[in-house]
Each structure stands twice: as structure tokens, then as C-alpha cells.
Amino acid sequence: MILAIEDLTVSHGEKIIVDKVSLTIDKGEWFALVGQSGSGKTMLSQAVGQLLGPNLKASGRVMYEGDNVLEHPKEKMNQLRGKAISYIFQDYHGSFTPFLTIQQHMEEYLQTHSVQKAQRKEMIREALESVGLDASFAKRYSFQLSGGQLQRASIALALLLEPDILIADEATTALDSVSAHRILSLLQELQQKTGCAILFITHDWRHVVRYSDKIAVMKDGKIIESGTKQKLVHQPEHAYTKQLIQAAPTLPMRVMEVSKS
């Protein structure tokens, strides 16, 4: 077990957005959190890294290496983000400022986590290479990259310090399905190489079926069903889970494959 969320509640004033959610993520596992927009899945993921806005309040426990992350002071949390927990977001344009090159972004990131200057360059080169971008991309600005390339760059950035958990919040939603697929198989490959766990937040059931090990379905701030992929795909219990499976169009072959396995 690498991360345990226990009774996590996120509220906005009187309104409860995430309602006493508990889940555990094991080392090197691909954990998918599925739900529609407004189900509270993004709030949950942001609470883990203390990224919630000032008018949102998180209570409960998020246990990492025996400590409750929610109680960490700001400085300690800053150290933890990137090294232990890192994020990639749906809005890949928003993840980069247009005034810095990809290299400068990464330099800054490494500097914040006090990596020696001598090592930085090599680390950046390796990171870009690992996501299939050649060294020339380091000198470019974010707006000179396509959506897929930019999301690759943000994966490179997120994995730079080899975190234990990568939280991917709708990371492929803004991409077309072909680019999305390429990004996801890249993530899978990198996960096998680095052994980091992935908390994968999505609304697309098809991505879940293909890549995840464990699945939790979230609705109205609560987890209504969770378990291994085998169980949720073949014997979904909750009506809402069945609805989600039904709604995603699939090719007939995929249906055959699933029923065979």
C-alpha cells in the first residue's frame, strides 16, 4: 500500500462535495476513479496534494508513509509534491506558462527540489526521451507544441523526480481518441519502468477497461462500487456502473474479447 485515503470529506461551506470516501492504492498499481463531471472525483484528487482552493475544506486522512498528508505544513507539502505525488491535468496548456521553454520549466522544477545543476541537463534529456520527444523540444515554448506533444511534456515533467504516485486528472479528455490512446500506452509503459502508482481519473469507461488494475466508480461524492477490473467489468453490481458501461460505444470485437477473457 502506497497511499490510503480514509474517510476523506471535502466541503464547500454547507455543501459536501466528497462524502467520506476511503480507498487504498497499492504500489505500482493503476487505480481508475470513474465518474461524471460533478461527481467530486477532481476534488478528491486535489485534496490529496493539498491543492484545494481556500473556500474548500478537506477532512479525514490521507496516509502516505505513515503520516497524514492533510496535516502537513505548507513547506513539507511542497517537498512532497513532485517527489512523492505529482499531477498531470486535463488543461495541458494551463500547465505551462507561455513565457518559458519546456527546458526552463523543468529546470525550475528541479531547482525547487534542490537537484544539483550538473545533473539537471542530463535528467531533462532523459525525461523528454522517455516520453518520445527528442532533445530539440527542450528549447521550444509550449504554444509551439501540439496537444499530444504538450501532454507528453507534462508527463515528462511529472515523472522527473520519480514520484510514487502520479495523479492523472482527465489527462486525455481534451485530446482526440487516437492521441489519447498513444498517451495512455506511454503512461502504461512508463509505469512498468518506474513502478509508480497511477490514480487515473476519467469519465471514459473504455480507457478504464484497457489500462486499469482496480476501479472505483464515484457518483455524487460517494464511491458506489469498487474492486478489481475483472469484477467491475464482468459483474458490475450497481445500476450506475452498468449504465456507464452501456453508454460508452464499443466495437463488436471488443465485446467479444471481453466475454472471452
Partner: peptide
């Protein structure tokens, strides 16, 4: 659109 609406619209 979100997943459930997608299916319904189709």
C-alpha cells in the same frame, strides 16, 4: 459531452 449524455445523444 460527458459519457452518459454521449450515449444518449447517439
Amino acid at each position: 459531452l460527458d459519457v452518459l449524455s454521449q450515449g444518449a445523444i447517439l
